[in-house]
Design a protein around this nucleic acid. Sequence first.
DNA 1: CATAGATGTCATGTC
DNA 2: ATGACATGACATCTA
Length: 602
Amino acid sequence: MIEMEMMHSSQQDMDLIDILWKQDIDLGARREVFDYNHRQKEHELRRQRELEEEKRQHLVREQEKALLAQLQLDEETGEYMPRPPPSAPLQSAVTPLEVTQDVSFTEENDDAMSFDECLQLLAETFPVEETEDTTAVSAPLMSPEQPALPPATLSPGPLLPPPPQRMSPDLEQAWMELLSLPELQQCLSMQMEDTLETTTYPLPNSPEVQNPNYTFYPMNHTDGETSTLDVCPAPFMNTFDGSVPSMVPPDNPSQMKEKAPQLNANFTAESFCDMFYPNAVLEESSGLEGHESNAVSDISNKPPFTPGDLYSLSSGDAFDRGKHHLMAEMPDSDSGISSSTSPNASSPGKSLHGDESFGYSDSDMEEMDNNPGSVESDYADMFPLNFQPDHLQSAIYISAATGQPQQQQEKNPKQYKTDPAEENGHNSTPFTKDKQKKRSEKRLSRDEQRAKALKIPFTVDMIINLPVDDFNELMSKHQLNESQLALVRDIRRRGKNKVAAQNCRKRKMENIVGLESNLDSLKDDKERLLSEKSQNITNLKEMKKELNSLYLEVFGMLRDEQGNSYSPSDYSLQQSTDGSVFLVPRIKKTFIKSEDSLLSPL
DNA sequence: CATAGATGTCATGTC
DNA sequence: ATGACATGACATCTA
């Protein structure tokens, strides 16, 4: 009976727990996360993965060597040039920057091929653990020509854990050369954007990223100037600097950090922007534009730019000069943005000055998401075959401010078309992402797009993850208008709250798990106590039995002077405090009883 | 199409 | 006063 009750109650408990589980398992961590055994297994699995990772790294190095074997060092320029073309496609891909800039890339196929090869190589070179591999590849590989970095890609370089091993100096340099090629870089950035952006984004939210000690950018604040680097990842500056030796191998964040200070001497955020958007600042395009459009068209059928790419680097003077005109009609803050205007970005009814890009409502985002190209493609579309580098955009904005919005208008319709890559069926990327990734990507992209729309010169990651002081410093360095400030603060708030919510849910789960284990232990206790109780009852019964038999035995041995036994009904044995036993007559009792019996009839 | 679960966002409170 | 964080409630999306 008791056991039945126990079973019943425990079943209820379990049901309750399951209900709670169903209600609250909404955090990243699953129930097993809290299971010790499960964690142990995971730990073992992780170790296994690490081993495999090492193997892969080794393989990758071999492949790098193989690649280098295909290159030969140009003694004049010190650059690695492709060896005469066994594989012709590679030639254009590895053509030095100086050459490519003035070359129009019309042979997309060839380039694509070479890019694919390079991508393949890179993908294999920097595989990393699922989430970080792409990041590792992308961040350092970003090309200077890319107007903006994706928020994620901009930052992750230094953030990434140092690779297990370093390349040899030769290899490093070869890689730098190779990676400094604009086509390759763009291609890579697009690749990684399309496939890895999501993987990058989670980083800031991951525990390690949240770690206050993480170095999100090469801004260790050893000196005041360092922070100016925030928007200028070393690789870019390196590339731009033209000082190849300073180029940091993509897989070596640590070195990147080392290099950063050195770069500081040459770059400030402003100078950096000027360098990146000389045309914007000077207000015209021409040379670089041509080059970039070439480069882009070259890879136009590939995964597009990262949104962040397009805006995150649009910092500095170029941006500052143009942005204010835009802000005016920009509803500020997220609420304003989401509720603002332009129902469809691609709609021709859009207002000028690119407010179509501002008016991202959630529904807009949704529509974008419906495009296989996802959000990034939209940005890519802004600079597709008709690619217009960010600096050019700025120039356009400027001219629009001066009363020549035509260019902007022309540009608008292009911006939210479906991804050309998708249209071309060129959805194939070396990397694949699951829908979950896509989703988070999309979510992140919202703020990114908003930031892009307002031309916020920082990455979303920066906005969210920078410490207050650094954040404020950053803000103070860029004179943002109210709309931008509001958006930035909204992004920061949302980003932090998102993390907080995740943590909260995780805690909730942990609490549930804790309660569950408590319940288990309590049930065990209860079971144990109940069995003890029943055992005690049994023992007690037994002892009572024994006592009774002993009592009777002793009592039966007692005799009075005549040798008669005492009647148990007339006498009882009682023990005194000193242990002696007395035979006590029950006279009183019987007397009273007899009295009662006598009285009762009356 | 309805639904549950996951996730993001907002409002509010606390530290 | 302010920012960071926690958390309940709601919105939205997805399977």
